[in-house]
């Protein structure tokens, strides 16, 4: 199963490497939104530093919708998913393979947005360990939820425009907790035992399990 999952991940990453959608469309989009936030908040240095963690996660969540719907569209176009099913690949392997590929793309996005925020908003990072762990764990949860809902809403044209409405409210807890993690980290009073990190972990573990269990059923027609 692991080799199958790795093959699926390799396939997705290769497609992404050749098409460069994340690099050419999604990351520039995220940076444009960062600039817009700067305009909206009137570049008041103090405000920008204060809201930087929240803006980071909001921008990441919104941009992730593009990556998620693209990840599922790859499978629906030309019935590629039927091909995978015919090859006898375990739905669980498809799920974890796609999760891995999506995670890689999301990480690139997050690094770009974080650099953008550091430069444009002059935000400070503080405890790097807490930041990195919370971002990795939160991203796993986001990818998992996104994949399941991508599968649920895919297949029809109208479905894709529905994805944000389905996914964003569900991700509210991870937005709150991951933002608080960064706030604590930048205030330098948060360690790896930050209580908000526990909530991020809880969310991600729950939704990794839910995703693994339901992804196969969501794919079936």
């Amino acid at each position: 199963m692991i080799s199958q999952a790795l093959a699926v991940a390799k396939k997705d990453i290769l497609i992404e490497y050749r098409a460069k959608v994340a690099l050419n469309q999604v990351i520039p989009f995220a940076l444009a939104v960062l600039l817009l936030f700067g305009f909206a908040l009137d570049t008041q240095a103090k405000v920008l530093v204060e809201v930087a963690p929240g803006i980071f996660w909001v921008v990441v969540l919104f941009s992730s919708l593009y990556l998620i719907s693209r990840s599922m569209r790859l499978e629906r176009d030309n019935g590629a998913i039927d091909g995978l099913a015919l090859l006898g690949i375990d739905p669980l392997a498809i799920f974890f393979g796609k999760l891995l590929a999506l995670f890689v793309a999301m990480s690139l996005l997050e690094i770009a947005v974080a650099v953008g925020i550091l430069v444009l908003f002059s935000a400070n990072l503080g405890s790097l360990a807490l930041l990195a762990v919370s971002a990795v764990v939160a991203t796993l949860g986001i990818c998992s939820v996104g994949l399941v809902y991508g599968a649920l809403a895919s297949g029809e044209r109208v479905g894709e425009s529905l994805l944000p409405l389905l996914v964003l409210p569900l991700l509210a807890p991870v937005l709150i907790a991951a933002t608080k993690c960064w706030s604590d980290a930048s205030a330098s009073h948060g360690g790896i035992y930050d209580p908000w990190l526990k909530l991020v972990v809880l969310f991600s573990v729950v939704f990794l399990v839910v995703g693994a269990v339901s992804f196969g059923a969501a794919l079936e027609d």
Partner: peptide, 22 residues
């Protein structure tokens, strides 16, 4: 039926976490 049932159950799982976080 199947897809909306999955969505309903995911929402059900999410609600306690939302509540806890807020």
């Amino acid at each position: 039926g199947k897809r909306s049932a999955i969505a309903a159950l995911i929402a059900f799982v999410d609600v306690p976490i939302v509540h806890e976080s807020v």
